[in-house]
Amino acid sequence: MTRRVQIFFGILFTLSPCATNAQHSKGLLSIGFNHYVDSVKLKLDTAIYKNEFGQTYNISNFKYYISNIELISETGKIVYLKEYFLINEDIETSKKVILSSIPKGKYTSIRFMIGVDSLHNCKGAQSGALDPVNAMFWTWNTGYIFMKLEGKSSASTATGKTIEYHIGGYKEPANCIRTVTLNFDSPLTITLKQTSDIQIRVNAAEVLKTPTAIDFSKLPTVNDSKNATLIADNYIDMFSIGK
């Protein structure tokens, strides 16, 4: 074969679907995040909600990190995916994430971290979901903000009647990294032919309750390690399987 022909076939090969050969025993999974406030769909800015104390509030910003995802198979095998996603109510595309390279098979549950592991809190400049341009980063006391919930409440005692919960921290005793496990109702099948899908329901109201109901007149803002674990223990149960 002449060199030119070789190059021609080389190009043809890389363009053809055969090039994805290595991926052949792996499938895709799409995960949708559906944001609610209790039983109603979350609507930024305009909708008015009530907390456990009957205080009214709105939400203008709701975002959080999901990382270190694990899928647990029927046989107990764990598939670990070193991924970092920033889910942001305001950005539609962020609420659907696609995971690739999942071995085909049946899975019974999913486990993930809310936040960013300590290693990546210490890793310096990073890009993608972990780029500090995403405004989920504390510069004066290094670390990612794992979850932001912002809004206003007439009950708030903070300037401008704001309520603002910026939760993060990877160091003890203010470690806010939380891991969530969700069991599927029926096993999730990953095939090679089509993208499988799971839907996760996220109740933003859980940030403000169980175990600790947040009173906006007493704790309108959390911006550093003080009281942060309180909120982290609240939001650990905001996820469930469902649309």
Binding site: N121, C122, K123, G124, T139, W140
Partner: peptide, 12 residues
């Protein structure tokens, strides 16, 4: 000692 990596010091 609030900053844990030389790379992100300039963000301050």
């Amino acid at each position: 000692g609030g900053v844990n990596n030389l790379e992100i010091q300039p963000l301050n």
